[in-house]
């Protein structure tokens, strides 16, 4: 069982990250997440064995941006079937809770 006092990450950080990630975690899940993240962060620490000061990062590989096409507006032929997947829709709109007080 993980405790709040850990080296790489603490419970407050877990709660902060969960808020950033838009995840509601139960108290049990927070504790489990703390232990799991601690284990992973300890493991990935092995990357610090490598001196990468002079190494460029790689974000993408392969033939990148090779495919170009004209920027042409196309119409959606079936808005109703798209809206059919929405949990709550009205006419041609997605319904959400009030966002302005």
């Amino acid at each position: 069982m993980a405790t709040e006092k850990t080296n790489k990450i603490n419970l407050d950080q877990v709660r902060h990250i969960a808020l950033l990630a838009r995840l509601e975690l139960t108290a049990d899940e927070e504790q489990r997440m703390l232990g799991d993240l601690e284990q992973m962060l300890e493991y990935v620490d092995k990357l610090n064995e490598l001196d990468t000061a002079a190494v460029e990062p790689t974000a993408q590989v392969g033939d990148i941006g090779a495919a170009m096409r004209d920027d042409v507006v196309a119409t959606c032929d079936d808005p109703q079937s798209i809206l059919a997947n929405a949990p709550d829709a009205r006419e041609q709109m997605f319904k959400v809770p009030k966002i302005i007080e």
Partner: peptide, 20 residues
């Protein structure tokens, strides 16, 4: 919002967090 499961809530932030 646009597809998938939704858990209703009073405000948008809680809707996101509970849904996910």
């Amino acid at each position: 919002i646009r597809y998938g499961v939704r858990v209703e809530a009073d405000n948008l932030l809680d809707l996101y967090r509970k849904t996910r």
